[in-house]
């Protein structure tokens, strides 16, 4: 988080992390497609010839608060391929929250675990306290054969404190729900650190409402969550 009182600007960094081909870029593409152009920047993406993310993707989403602050949420993805670990670490620096995009298939379990461990390693290397950076787990590709059952997802949920969201990112399912969950946790952490509601008059409800105000929420649970102030689990 970068809080600049002189320019009245708050910058939030959310990083989409996970194994190669788990759907990180697809998540950003879906958010981009569902957000009105006045509330976001261009989706910057650098791909190799085989459509794999080479460096990172970046989608900025921004809004103005009632208190006169500009809030910029920068959504990044890291390159998933093993060889790009240094780039992953550079992108992960100073992240306020992480969305860990896992592949739901049972065959991907080992890779998910490897990247989970890699995330913890890189956080430590970057001086981030893994216990203090909120993480949301998205189980993507729920539609593929061999995916884990809902009961198995429930088991994963019970094993840790991170919220778990099921998704089929390619169809947009679960994408905004994941974003909602990760932004809610990011806000809570930043509020704890910098007292956002006390110091710049930005409440959690306003933060989430303004981000999603320019997004097409049809067919998602986010509208209900915004109305009820619910937290996904």
């Amino acid at each position: 988080m970068q809080l600049n009182h002189a320019q009245r600007e708050l910058t939030v960094k959310v990083v989409y992390y996970g194994p190669g081909l788990s759907g990180k870029t697809t998540n950003l593409q879906m958010i981009h497609a569902r957000t009105g152009s006045e509330g976001r920047g261009k989706l910057l993406t650098v791909e190799t010839h085989d459509d794999r993310t080479l460096f990172f993707d970046l989608l900025p989403v921004f809004f103005h608060t009632k208190g006169g602050y500009t809030v910029k949420v920068k959504l990044f993805t890291v390159p998933g391929q093993v060889i790009h670990n240094a780039t992953r670490r550079v992108v992960l620096q100073n992240a306020d929250a992480v969305a860990f995009i896992a592949d739901s298939r049972r065959s991907a379990g080992q890779e998910n675990n490897q990247y989970w461990a890699n995330l913890q390693d890189n956080m430590r290397e970057n001086g981030l306290n893994a216990a203090q950076v909120p993480i949301v787990i998205q189980f993507n590709k729920r539609d593929l054969p061999d995916s884990k059952t809902d009961a198995e997802l429930q088991e994963t949920r019970a094993r840790g404190k991170e919220p778990v969201v099921g998704a089929v990112a390619i169809r947009g399912e679960g994408v905004l729900e994941t974003l909602y969950a990760v932004l809610q946790l990011a806000y809570r952490k930043m509020d704890e650190q910098a007292g956002l509601s006390r110091n710049i008059g930005l409440t959690e409800a306003e933060f989430l409402k303004l981000i999603f105000a320019r997004m097409d929420l049809s067919g998602t649970q986010v509208g209900d969550w915004l109305a009820n102030g619910e937290a996904p689990r």
């Binding site: 809080l3 600049n4 009182h5 306290n129 650190q193 007292g195």
Partner: peptide, 18 residues
């Protein structure tokens, strides 16, 4: 986190991450 533009005074920060 980092803060700026506040006449150099440290901002309201609870960040004790090593």
């Amino acid at each position: 986190m980092s803060e700026g533009g506040d006449s150099g005074r440290p901002g309201p920060s609870g960040d004790h991450t090593p």
